[in-house]
Design a protein around this nucleic acid. Structure first.
Length: 379
DNA sequence: ATGTAC
């Protein structure tokens, strides 16, 4: 974060992680820098905390004004879980992977119709609707590993889709605009504040529609239907009675069940946030495993030979990874992430959430390079 | 993170 002014003293930082969650010193320093910013009222660090470009990821920040940097470049990014009417026992990994490959290509359906049906205003970035994007985004076919609480209707006979994506170019343009204006805090009652919140809300709705369309495309590819189980954003800001609550890589704990995914080589957990959670957690929980190692160090850690790449396209459960981008395949290797079991154990021991069910990855779709389209482009 | 800077 660099040097930041300390004006009113420092806001309280509450950490909801133990030593088992591999918290880097750099991430804690970023948290302290945030707490020292004038007008910041409280900071909560989650067990998936790790350093980010504009500040810590895996935290909630309560402030007197809007800080676009705390929302980051992908407002609305989040998780959505869907149940498929597809029997888990009928799944064949190779066949499913072959069918799911097509969702890595641009959506060739009626985007304008989707935008209209969702009552979204048209935008310059609608061409990306229904696509996964890059970075840590994915669409994963999963089966149930274990059900801890049957009352939420998780059915071990069914297959599931987990979509992690965001607002694509829309959120990026929103932060770019703020950066060009100095990236300072904004009074929510000002014209600028209202304009930011309006664009932010648009990005959140767009991202939610995007995740639903990704899941629908996946279901169509698998010749079945998808039914929403839960969805939420983990990059956002909301106006509350006690201030502006920013979540940067933190899921809400006041809107029902939440998926906390592990890496593509680990289980994902559906959790129930607990009503009796301490208020210092700022109505938030962890949003995933959290990065353990930065992207640039991963090539040296996992190797770059053909056999290294082959290993990276499979997961420890016998599942497959679809990722044509070699660098991304390495950067997002399971080894780059913390233990999701440790994150879930921390959430439980601090009284923030309890596990409802766990899921195992069968096929993870990342970036697909369409060779036929490339050839056509060259002509 | 990015219809991805040069």
């Amino acid at each position: 974060m660099g040097k930041l002014p300390i004006v009113d003293g420092r806001a309280p930082i509450h950490a909801f992680y133990s030593s088992r969650s591999w918290i880097e010193g750099a991430a804690v320093r970023q948290l302290e820098s945030v707490a020292a910013i004038s007008g910041v009222r409280a900071v909560a660090g989650m067990p998936d905390l790790h350093p980010g470009k504009f500040g810590p990821v895996g935290c909630a920040i309560l402030a007197d004004r809007i800080h676009p940097a705390f929302v980051g470049s992908d407002a609305g990014c989040g998780m959505a879980l869907f149940a498929l009417d597809l029997p888990a026992r009928k799944l064949r990994v190779e066949k499913a992977a072959e069918r799911l490959r097509k969702i890595g290509r641009p959506y060739d359906g009626d985007i304008a119709g989707e935008i209209e049906a969702a009552e979204l205003p048209p935008s310059d970035f609608d061409g990306a609707l229904g696509t996964i994007g890059g970075g840590n985004h994915f669409c994963e076919l999963q089966i149930v590993e274990e059900v801890f609480d049957a009352s939420f209707g998780i059915d071990r006979q069914r297959a599931y889709i987990l979509a992690h994506s965001g607002s694509r170019g829309l959120g990026h343009a929103l932060l770019e605009q703020q950066m060009s204006e100095g990236l300072g805090p904004i009074d929510p009652a000002s014209d600028k504040g209202r304009a930011y919140l309006h664009a932010h809300d648009h990005a959140l709705r767009w991202a939610s529609v995007n995740r639903r369309l990704i899941a629908r495309r996946a279901a169509q590819a698998l010749r079945c239907d998808a039914e929403l189980v839960c969805q939420c954003s983990h990059n956002c800001v909301e106006h509350r009675a006690d201030g502006l609550l920013h979540r940067k890589g933190a899921a809400p704990s006041d809107r029902g069940i939440v998926v906390v995914p592990g890496s593509r080589g680990a289980l994902s957990y559906l959790v129930e946030p607990l009503a009796g959670a301490p208020p210092e957690a700022l109505a938030s929980i962890a949003h995933g495993a959290g990065r353990k190692y930065d992207r640039t160090s991963m090539m040296g850690r996992v190797g770059a030979t053909k056999s290294d790449r082959e290993r990276l396209t499979r997961n420890p459960f016998g599942g497959q990874v679809i990722c044509d981008d070699r660098a991304l395949l390495v950067e997002e290797a399971p080894e780059a992430y913390k233990s999701i079991a440790g994150v879930i154990a921390d959430l439980a021991s601090f009284g923030l959430a309890r596990a409802v069910a766990s899921f195992r990855p069968v096929v993870t779709v990342k970036k697909v390079v369409d060779l036929t389209a490339q050839k056509e482009d060259r002509r």
